[in-house]
Design a protein around this nucleic acid. Structure first.
Lengths: 223, 223
DNA sequence: AGGGTTTGTGATAGCCTCTAACTATATTTT
DNA sequence: AAAATATAGTTAGAGGCTATCACAAACCCT
């Protein structure tokens, strides 16, 4: 599955059999890694365990990944890509904040630990690779597109003026600052309910997290 | 510092010198643990390293904590307690949502990893001890008290009805469900902005997180 | 001062990451 | 086809970790 971005176009034989094998092994490594992460969390991910699971002995994996961090970095990249793709697919029928929000929640519930790999506790030393910020820029663009239609009804907050001076992150998107503000708010609020739900903080409380999410989304759409 | 909750009441000599030493060592262990967590994150916390830092060799620490998990559990408990105390102190001048929110943010910024110990990525196997739910109940009560005054102006949402059927978590608090709803929203929204800020997701974006927080708080106070 | 408790020690097992030296196999070049 | 090179895997080992155990030393209390 997946197989995206592989096809080499005209010259079909562009990938040597060795390289083919290599990418295949890397794919299996990641597959096992995701299984492990889903069940035990990213902090417990073990290169060694993956190797043995694949029938090869420990250090062999270092031919494919420079180390644990390199593997995790790759997983983070894939997680970002997967999220962006999901939101992109959700935007296929035109920009729609509600659809976007629900796609985000569905994606998160599909594998909570994958969500936390992106939005969870940061590990102090670590810095995400540059291309992830590119992908998150993609996501932002989708969000801004979806926010643009329903703008301009809320009174301009003082924060909007501040945003006007700091719109670098919008990467040239033509939306007015009220829209940037809305996108930001969408992000923080959705993340707020979602991350608390995924972390289990609503567990003993009795109410249905889905309804809280829906309610928050409603207020986001019609402030 | 801290020293809270120690005093043994009337019979001052209730603590034997041995027990005194014991609690003192445990305190130092936790102190070192907090330093380590602040600088390298909870996932990298090492019993061994703490022991050596304290001049004793590895397994000695197991006299004071049953294991790494027991230590972390204790730290989580203390984090909850510290947060609750901060919010309690902030509530001293009467219930006030804005003061509460700012106290929460100040507490979080003081040691982001401590915040994440409570609200960060959950580790799949782990279940927090019962008494933490008690403390989080304390916090909820403060929140509900602060939300009660400024209620009843927003139209009753469908979710309010659902909450009326699930008010166990409010632990007998007499507030109407619109207030429960407001408290919940306060929690998720504050956590939304705060956790993204602490995790560094606003880092490259240019705007001032404090202003975004203030803006979100404003809209929370006057919806 | 003696006796039981408690604290710390080193040894050990069993994980882990990661490096290094070596072998076997596959690919590429002559 | 044969030789040279590149790559995938192996085992061994250093050094880290958690955690248990048996043992020695210190301590508190009667």
């Amino acid at each position: 599955m997946a197989e995206a971005g592989a096809k080499a176009g005209a010259k079909a034989g562009a990938t040597s059999p060795r390289e083919r094998y290599r990418t295949q092994v890397r794919a299996e490594i990641k597959e096992r890694a995701w299984e492990q992460i889903a069940s035990t969390g990213a902090s417990a991910l073990s290169i060694n365990a993956i190797a043995k699971q694949m029938g090869m002995s420990g250090p062999a994996l270092y031919r494919y990944y420079a180390g644990r961090d390199a593997l995790i970095t790759d997983l983070i990249r894939d997680a970002y890509r997967s999220l962006a793709d999901s939101l992109l697919a959700a935007s296929a029928g035109g920009p729609d904040l509600a659809v976007l929000a629900n796609a985000m929640r569905a994606w998160a519930l599909e594998d909570p630990q994958r969500y936390f790999l992106i939005y969870g506790t940061p590990v102090p030393g670590y810095h995400a690779p540059d291309d992830t910020t590119l992908i998150s820029g993609e996501i932002m663009a989708l969000l801004l597109d979806a926010c643009a239609p329903l703008a301009a009804d809320s009174p301009a907050a003082p924060f909007d003026a501040h945003l006007d001076d700091h719109r670098e992150w919008a990467d040239g998107h033509p939306a007015p600052s009220t829209v940037l503000h809305r996108a930001l708010t969408f992000w923080t609020r959705i993340h707020g309910v979602l991350s608390l739900e995924l972390a289990g903080h609503f567990a003993g409380m009795g109410f249905d997290p889905a309804l809280l999410f829906a309610d928050e989304l409603d207020r986001l759409l019609a402030p």
